[in-house]
Simulated assay, not measured.
Amino acid sequence: MIFLGLVVAVAAVAAGAAVVLENRESVELVAFGETVPGVTEEWHVFMAGAVVAITFMAGLAVAILGVRRSLGIRRELRDLRDEHEESLQTLEMEKRQLELELAQVRRNTPPPLPSSTS
Rank of each mutant, 00 (worst) to 15 (best):
1 M>V: 00
3 F>E: 07
4 L>T: 11
4 L>Y: 12
5 G>I: 12
6 L>C: 14
7 V>I: 12
8 V>A: 15
9 A>R: 15
9 A>I: 15
15 A>T: 12
17 A>K: 15
22 E>S: 05
22 E>D: 07
24 R>Y: 12
25 E>S: 15
25 E>P: 04
26 S>V: 13
30 V>Q: 07
33 G>E: 05
38 G>N: 14
39 V>P: 00
40 T>W: 06
41 E>R: 11
44 H>K: 00
45 V>F: 01
47 M>K: 07
48 A>N: 02
49 G>A: 08
51 V>Y: 06
51 V>R: 11
51 V>D: 13
52 V>N: 09
52 V>R: 06
54 I>F: 12
54 I>W: 05
55 T>M: 05
56 F>W: 07
56 F>S: 01
57 M>Q: 00
57 M>P: 02
58 A>I: 13
59 G>P: 06
59 G>H: 00
59 G>L: 03
59 G>K: 08
60 L>R: 09
61 A>F: 14
62 V>Y: 04
65 L>R: 11
67 V>Q: 06
70 S>T: 07
70 S>C: 07
71 L>T: 07
71 L>N: 13
71 L>M: 12
73 I>K: 08
73 I>P: 03
74 R>F: 02
75 R>A: 05
77 L>Q: 09
78 R>L: 11
79 D>V: 10
80 L>M: 13
81 R>F: 04
83 E>Q: 09
87 S>T: 14
88 L>Q: 15
88 L>A: 15
89 Q>Y: 06
91 L>R: 12
91 L>Q: 13
92 E>Y: 03
92 E>C: 05
95 K>I: 14
96 R>T: 04
97 Q>E: 13
98 L>H: 06
99 E>I: 06
99 E>W: 08
101 E>G: 04
102 L>S: 11
102 L>T: 03
104 Q>H: 15
104 Q>S: 15
104 Q>M: 14
104 Q>K: 15
106 R>Y: 02
109 T>M: 00
109 T>Q: 06
109 T>W: 04
109 T>G: 05
109 T>Y: 02
110 P>W: 09
112 P>C: 01
113 L>H: 05
113 L>P: 04
114 P>S: 14
116 S>F: 14
117 T>G: 08
117 T>E: 10
118 S>P: 09
118 S>N: 13
